[in-house]
Design a protein around this nucleic acid. Structure first.
Lengths: 173, 173
DNA sequence: GTAAAACCTATAGTTAACTATAGGTCAAGA
DNA sequence: TCTTGACCTATAGTTAACTATAGGTTTTAC
């Protein structure tokens, strides 16, 4: 056993404040004590370390129980769901973080807030789709001619401001 | 000056084999000695280190001149162009590498080979577009209802085999 | 011929998004 | 009560795709 001094002041304080009644996981859930990190991990389909990581990035928040263990509000499940969805859309955690900035930290977002956020994402998503379609069409034309000239191929050069020194259709031979 | 012994055997051998006539960059280009790494970098719009990196991954190949400097065949410009395009399509260097495996290492690919490769990519691209569109539509329905239930939201659960323990529409309140 | 620019290799650092490990504490159930 | 599993923190490692730096050699341009 380790002495009390190895614990942080916060922990000691919390311990003193709490009455130490054991609760089952079911009780915890129904009494609103919050979800353990393992519960969230299992139900959201991510690893515990990933949740630690998300918390360190400020993407999710938790409180602590008497024993310094994290307790999550149910809406954090939603948060994780949103994170995972947004990643599928190709958004980075930073972008997601920015979107979350507009939402309440601990309470569930209102329908309106959620709609606003998802509308922004819908736009991003639509942009992504548009540019992929453009790329596909360019690729189609390249398949047609069999060429990919540095200078003239639109697949390569939609936004390319690289060297201009007269390569020409060198690959067309 | 550093003694001959600091050089590799290969370098010494090469040096002995070569007559040391200076050539200008223009001469090099026209005599077919090949492009320097700087030329390729400038004309392909990537950094010299990136080319080193690509070479170390086997994505491009080069020979060496008498002084141990890389000389690239013109078709490596095309390679780099292809790499950059494919990355825009969301392909990893590994995937690109695999695609290249079917192409001749040093010679220019034939039109047919190139077409075959780009057709494969077109398919990948189309798949990507399709799944983004599906995601967008799911997001639309979520915007409509304002919900993102862990259990029922199709945005979250298209392929989700995570925990099943009865969360239900907990966020719908 | 000489100085500057371009090369060379090798190594280390960077960002994103995690995953793994160590060493210790807390909680749940038999 | 006691064992086992879940937690805790902190640190290190991983992969992808590069970027940066150091210290030395070659080429080019004047």
């Amino acid at each position: 056993m380790v002495s009390e001094t190895t614990k942080t002041i916060t922990q000691i304080k919390k311990r003193k404040e709490s009455s130490n009644q054991p609760t089952t996981r079911l009780q915890r859930r129904s009494t609103g004590e919050g979800l353990s990190i393992g519960d969230v991990a299992k139900r959201a389909g991510v690893s515990v370390q990933t949740l630690h990581f998300y918390e360190s990035k400020g993407l999710i928040v938790s409180s602590r129980n008497a024993g310094n263990q994290r307790r999550f509000h149910g809406n954090m499940l939603r948060r994780v769901a949103i994170i995972k969805s947004a990643q599928k859309l190709g958004l980075s955690l930073n972008e997601i973080s920015e979107a979350f900035a507009s939402l309440p930290k601990t309470k569930s977002p209102t329908t309106k807030q959620w709609q606003q956020m998802s509308k922004g994402w819908r736009e991003k998503l639509q942009n992504k789709i548009d540019s992929l379609i453009a790329l596909r069409d360019q690729l189609d034309s390249c398949i047609g001619c069999g060429c990919l000239s540095i200078k003239s191929c639109s697949l390569r050069n939609p936004d390319d401001s690289a060297s201009n020194d007269g390569v020409g259709a060198v690959f067309l031979k």
